[in-house]
């Protein structure tokens, strides 16, 4: 039997190398960013995306391959290697210049365009290579833009299931059901492939890369591309004017009794 189109889902998982969630963020000396000479790791929402792609593969047997993609400086290879060690099948690295070049950390619109270019290229490579599903973090914890997924779906003209807390793909019909946590309950949306899904915190719990899988990841392929190879431009449209710390909390005072408290509140215009 000729496998139907749906049996050949290729999943693309874009992953970002971001400052590790446990690191205390400090403002850089020039006041235009944060100190990036600290520990980095895969953006936690992207980790959830990689996990969900692997689970989808294990659960539905409908996934042919999981491709991890990262856009960033040379060290992003480490992040891709982590995705491969978790269970992605291959990886693409779009190499950007090192910081402080503004293109080292491209803006969401450029990232979306780059992801689209990779998807277009996959379509050109043949039906069995075409990417039909993108699972990506809803936001990166460094810039918190949270807009790449939506922009990408718009550029591709695909459906989108954002902030997914549950994902189901029906192998036979190609229907995708995304559950989203909204104020006051759950919203379930249905769509058809191809689709862009962005992950919420409760979608899945990322696995640890086991040692044998770390060794296997060594043998998996990471394709290295320059932005020019895909005909994309990563130069920024915005520039950061300044980055500053939130104002420090100032300690309060003590009052002797309720009357004094009420008076202070009145003075402050609070009551």
């Amino acid at each position: 039997m000729i496998p139907s189109r749906v049996n050949l889902i290729n999943v693309l998982v874009p992953v970002k190398r971001a400052i590790d969630y446990a690191v205390k963020i400090r403002i850089a000396k020039d006041g235009k960013g944060v100190d990036t000479t600290v520990k980095h790791s895969m953006n936690p929402f992207d980790e959830i995306a990689v996990e969900e792609a692997i689970r989808l593969k294990e659960r539905t047997k409908a996934v042919t391959s999981i491709i991890a993609l990262s856009i960033g400086p040379a060290k992003s290879v480490e992040t891709l290697r982590t995705a491969l060690a978790m269970g992605a099948d291959s990886a693409v690295h779009i190499v950007t210049p090192e910081a402080p070049s503004p293109s080292s950390n491209p803006e969401p619109v450029n990232v979306a365009a780059a992801i689209k270019a990779v998807i277009d290229r996959s379509k050109a490579a043949g039906a069995d290579k075409a990417i039909d599903l993108v699972i990506m973090g809803k936001q990166a914890i460094d810039d918190d833009s949270g807009s790449t997924g939506g922009m990408l779906a718009g550029m591709l003209g695909w459906g989108q299931g954002t902030f997914a807390s549950k994902l189901d793909v029906d192998k036979a019909s190609g229907k995708v059901e995304v559950t989203r946590e909204i104020d006051g309950g759950l919203s379930r949306i249905e769509s058809k492939l191809p689709i862009v899904v962005t992950t919420d915190l409760r979608l899945s719990e990322p696995r640890y890369a086991s040692l044998p899988n770390i060794m296997k990841a060594k043998k998996k392929k990471i394709e290295s591309l320059k932005p020019e190879d895909l005909g994309i431009d990563l130069s920024p449209r915005m520039s950061v004017l300044s980055v500053s710390e939130p104002p420090k909390r100032v300690g309060g005072g003590k009052v002797e009794n309720v009357d004094e408290l009420v008076q202070k509140l009145k003075e402050g215009g609070i009551v």
């Binding site: 480490e78 290697r81 982590t82 060690a85 086991s210 040692l211 770390i214 990841a217 060594k218």
Partner: peptide, 9 residues
């Protein structure tokens, strides 16, 4: 690279 990843995991 594997040693670094192992330490992390």
């Amino acid at each position: 690279e594997e040693e670094e990843m192992l330490r992390e995991t």
